[in-house]
């Protein structure tokens, strides 16, 4: 794992990727800090962090798009397969290198609250907990980007796919506020989601029976609830969609709460996407 980690980290800095990412992040942080803290005279650094989340929509796909797809394009994925390293170590090595890159701007950003504090009263605990949550958010998004990169050998497709997922996650709170809470809508929306899951299951295993079983497991309870306990479904799709609002989890930190549930959420989603990436890479070897 260590050899892959070192190699990845080195690749970020022998190519422009690492420098471009750092420059982009620090420039954005600088602009937001100047605007919010110096132009509008606010002593709250957490607003800078909250606004920085938007920058991640572009920065993370750019950083992660090459992780696996470039290896496939350059045929160096074969080297990784033939070396005595298991897929888990390769994925973890690459993920840790991504975390290290994202850690650098987060660490540099830690100096900003101190600079601002010389001009006013800054709540350092809130500022640092926000930066910490921001770093965890970056890691979670990197795991999603790494997964999309493992799906294709085209870097652009990987980046667009990652951007699409992140944009959807970013917009979910706004969408959830405006969707109907009626049980009939909830039923239809869950049925569409179940159909999408079934499609993914079929693409993954190409077996009708398993797809049918998956459809039954999801749809039968839904039908029972819809016809027997209709009121249980009211407003449930909106609350269900909030599960995917990754960016929204940072809000409690900006409000001055050190939210353990959000940390557990970030760690869980990150681990889930690392597992997906390992599966995706393993599956490629079996093809």
């Amino acid at each position: 794992m260590l050899s892959v980690y070192k190699k990845e980290l080195r690749l970020y800095f022998v190519t422009a990727t690492g420098y471009v990412f750092l420059a982009f992040m620090l420039l954005s942080a600088g602009i937001f800090t100047s605007l919010i803290n110096f132009v509008y005279y606010s002593a709250a650094f957490e607003y800078v962090v909250k606004d920085m989340c938007f920058v991640l929509l572009i920065a993370i796909p750019l950083l992660t798009m090459r992780v696996f797809s470039d290896e496939k394009k350059q045929k160096t994925d074969k080297l990784l397969s033939l070396l005595p390293i298991d897929v888990k170590s390769i994925v973890l090595g690459k993920f840790l290198a991504l975390c290290t890159i994202t850690l650098i701007p987060a660490v540099i950003m830690c100096a900003y609250p101190f600079i601002i504090s010389s001009y006013g009263v800054v709540n350092l605990k809130t500022a640092f907990s926000c930066i910490f949550a921001f770093f965890l958010l970056e890691c979670t998004l990197c795991s999603i980007g790494m997964f999309t990169s493992s799906l294709t050998e085209n870097q652009i497709i990987a980046a667009i796919l990652c951007f699409g997922i992140l944009l959807l996650c970013y917009m979910i709170p706004t969408i959830a506020e405006n969707i109907s809470s009626a049980s009939s809508f909830t039923f239809r929306a869950f049925t569409v989601c179940a159909a999408a899951v079934c499609a993914i299951v079929f693409i993954a295993c190409k077996k009708w029976l398993i797809t049918l079983i998956a459809a039954c497991i999801m749809e039968i309870p839904l039908l029972v609830i819809y016809f027997k306990y209709n009121e249980l479904l009211v407003g449930k799709f909106a609350s269900f969609s909030q599960w995917f609002a990754i960016f929204g989890k940072i809000d409690s930190f900006t409000n001055g709460v050190f939210d353990i549930t959000a940390i557990v959420y970030f760690v869980t989603v990150t681990l889930l996407f690392i597992c997906f990436t390992i599966q995706s890479e393993n599956r490629r070897r079996w093809r």
Partner: peptide
């Protein structure tokens, strides 16, 4: 392998 698996930037 048929195509040498080398990293261009190394």
């Amino acid at each position: 392998p048929e195509i040498p698996p080398v990293y261009d930037d190394f």
